[in-house]
Design a protein around this nucleic acid. Structure first.
Length: 500
RNA sequence: GGUGAGGUGGCUGAGCGGUUAAAAGUACUCGACUUGAAAUCGAGCAGACUCGAAAGGGUCUCGGGGGUUCGAAUCCCCCCCUCACCGCCA
């Protein structure tokens, strides 16, 4: 959620943000509603204030009179009844006016809130303007060195020395199989039975396929927890709507989430399956006020992710690329509201991923996403794409030419998400500023408390599998059809070196 | 699924129709005392929204929503959540 006050002060910033992100939100309408709402509530509050005064004045009189009335009889009784009614007239009139204003506010609120939730966070000035993924800008790429670093592989095996600009055959000396062929030939996945059980875009990982999947996740999780010191978490993947709205996935992405209607428990809330562990991790501190000393919070989780992939019909239908259910190790950081700090974390979080991919020897590139590719909640997003030899167009001989495929996405959100989550911290008091011993009398002192501030948040993929199995299998395959297990994964596969 | 008890400020916990934004304790901040600390004493200590150039006002919030009343933390209704015991179950 954006800051409504800021929107009032500089609406052009938000108009511009909408334009750059290619989202149509009626900022002017929002301003009108906001103006109207504030006017109504100010008037309402004034009447309420009067109401309070009147109440203090008349309340006791009414109490006394009502008490006396019980004992009164005859003429005196009816006289007192009339008096009582007369006394009640003023508060009753005020109440009616309050209700009028409230009705006005109640009429505006739903539309105002809906609009407010849909205003995107304006992209940062240094994010290139563009309309789609095609306008994303490559920042840098990494290619595995010809000599594998200590312990990461054997020369001549796997992706060492691979140059993504050259055809696979030129690199490796044999024609590659696609991951779909590999999993079929090696018995790593069973798509037919997956579909039988669960419908389209479903799969079953079998035998070594499952072991490899598990190994990747464990490798990623251990990297984050043991090496980087992130706190290991297991969070719900079945969550309430508040968590989806709070993390910024709703309302915009509602049609991408699976909706689970709770079994008739009164007016029980519906629940939704999360498409990323980010939801559970970020919703953890919803409505909390943290202490500055406790920041930054660094969390990692491994969770099953569910995505409807609505609107992607016909895209990437084969294989493990675009599926409804997968597992992902995710990292989030919740830090102080400081742009420099939050940018520094963004870089670090990308660094962890680079280290991980380099450990696997996979060629990758970093893309600065353009404004049109950001989504509502991001100010900045960097995608990591890994080289997938089996993807892309076919050449004249009917061989896939390979293509980059998105495997990671690192977002920087400022306080957009934490505003929605109502997640704040109280800055540690900055001592010294309000010089206590100064010239003015010491009496008045005390309570200059620091106001609370919304945290900044960031998130990044660590590893999403089975998608990440695609480059692993395709890059580590051998001419004989076997696949070498990347050395970093072997400890998680009982030391197994080769799948054949 | 059944029964019972609850949800009050950072925490503990009073209040159960009218000077209660809310006692008390505790934590925290500042000051005094002290060589320093502890202890003690004094003072302060909720958030959001909003009006205002500022000083400073105002409104709302005692799980959430609705209702009764001149007036609700206190009464009524619905919902959510927590705890305990029983049943069932990975």
């Amino acid at each position: 959620m954006i800051d409504l006050k800021d929107l009032r002060e500089r609406p052009d910033r938000y108009r511009d943000g909408c334009r750059k992100k290619g989202m149509a939100v009626d900022i002017d309408r929002l301003l009108v509603l906001d103006e109207r709402r504030r006017s109504l509530s100010t008037q309402r509050d004034a009447v309420r204030a009067e109401q309070g005064k009147v109440e203090k004045e008349i309340g006791p009189q009414i109490g006394k009179l009502a008490g006396a009335l019980k004992k009164a009889t005859g003429d005196e009784r009816s006289r007192m009844e009339a008096e009582l009614e007369a006394l009640k007239a003023r508060p009753a009139a005020l109440k009616a006016r309050v209700q009028e204003f409230e009705a006005g506010v109640a009429e505006i609120d739903p539309e105002l809130n809906a609009l407010l939730l849909s205003v995107p966070l304006p992209p940062d000035a240094d994010v290139p303007v563009g309309t789609s993924g095609d306008d994303n800008v490559e920042i840098r790429r990494w290619a595995p060195p010809a000599q594998p670093p200590q312990g990461l592989g054997t020369t001549g095996e796997g992706p060492w020395g691979f140059d993504a600009k050259k055809p696979y055959e030129e690199n490796r000396g044999f024609r590659p199989k696609t991951h779909v062929e590999l999993v079929k030939d090696l018995g790593l996945a069973d798509f037919e039975r997956g579909v039988k059980i669960a419908g389209s875009r479903s799969y079953v990982l079998t035998g070594d396929g499952m072991l490899l999947h598990n190994a990747v996740l464990r490798y990623a999780f251990d990297t984050m927890t043991l090496r980087q010191g992130f706190k290991a978490m297991s969070v719900p993947v079945l969550v309430r709507e508040e968590a989806m709205v709070g993390t910024g996935f709703f309302p915009a992405g509602r049609e991408q989430a699976y909706h689970v209607e709770e079994s008739k428990r009164g007016g029980g809330h519906d629940q939704f399956l999360t498409g990323t562990g980010e939801v559970g991790l970020m919703a953890l501190h919803i409505d909390e006020i943290l202490r500055e000393e406790d920041l930054p919070l660094r969390y990692t989780t491994v969770s099953t992710c569910f995505r409807r992939e609505a609107g992607a019909a016909g895209k990437d239908t084969a294989g493990l690329y675009r599926i409804h259910q997968f597992d992902k190790v995710e990292q989030v950081v919740i830090c102080r509201a400081d742009e420099a700090e939050s940018r520094a974390w963004h870089t670090k979080m990308l660094g962890y991923v680079e280290e991980l991919l380099q450990g696997l020897g996979l060629p990758y590139r970093l893309l600065q996403c353009c404004t049109g590719d950001l989504g509502v909640k991001n100010a900045d997003m960097i995608d990591v794409e890994s080289w997938m030899p089996g993807r892309g167009e076919m050449d004249k001989q009917g061989r896939p030419m390979g293509d980059w495929g998105e495997t990671h996405s690192a977002s920087r959100l400022y306080d957009y998400q934490c505003r929605r989550l109502n997640l704040r911290y109280r800055p540690a008091a900055t001592a010294g500023a309000s010089g206590s011993g100064g010239g003015s009398g010491e009496g008045s002192g005390g309570g200059d408390r620091t106001p609370t501030v919304f945290c900044h948040s960031l998130n990044n993929t660590v590893a999403a599998s089975p998608r990440l199995l695609i480059p692993i299998l395709e890059m580590w395959q051998n001419a004989d059809g076997s696949v070498t297990v990347p050395p970093v994964l072997r400890p998680y596969m009982g030391g197994k070196e080769r799948i054949d």
